[in-house]
Amino acid sequence: MKSLFRPAQPTSPAVLDDHRPIIRSLQRRGLIRGGLSLGALTMLTGCDVSRPAAVEAALRGISTFNDWFQQQLFNPNKLAPTYPASMVLKPPRFNAYYDIMDVKPVDGDTWKLELAGLIDDKTPWKLPQFAALPQQDEVIRHICIEGWDYIGQWSGVPLRDFLRRIGADTRAKYVNFQSADDYPSSLDMATALHPQTILATSYAGEPLAAPFGFPMRLRTSTKLGFKNPKWITAIEVTNTYTPGYWEKAGFGWFSGI
């Protein structure tokens, strides 16, 4: 007998494509939940095949302490080393939680940057408005949590200039980002105000190419690579902590270098 819940029309495969990131995150969550259930099971049987809850809690506790410790170590005036333009890797190295073939390019004409939270003027911004502001160019090292690195030349509007221009409350704790590839990210305010943190719109003197975050991505010289969201669509200034994509999976939040 045909199930009552089966739709009359079969679902279009395009729907699956559109929601791939959500499906991935659900699968990941399922994996984490599965891991937790396995942990609970080992507690019942009294043998420690994976990480028992007490060890898990201790590791999380030290990780939170490490986030705090790194914030104390962070010097807001310390500039990262910069390099000659001859060392710049062209094109930059692609990296995301999906393959380069799955990049969904963003239309720069219809793109706008939404603003939310503790900001005086929340009018969305269009791309040409950023081009009219003073730009900053920097040749800095990108270091991935995996261990690889490369030198890139990024330019765009310094985030601190932009935050002041829109009347953001810079005493708030966090600057959060939303992106077109469903990759939320959370930055501490001290890093957001660092002189080498920019809303990058160009690479090696050319507009950003689609796979590297066109039209706008974050580049900060004092964080690991995964803390630099690409294809940014919204910025929120807030005192509420929201973990980013990889933080939910277990990477440390501060991740300063």
């Binding site: 590791l59 490490n66 277990g250 990477f251 440390g252």
Partner: peptide, 16 residues
Amino acid sequence: GSWAAESLMWHFAGMW
């Protein structure tokens, strides 16, 4: 650690 994030957590705890 079952993958890099867990191994990093152990490494950054063990270092102290």
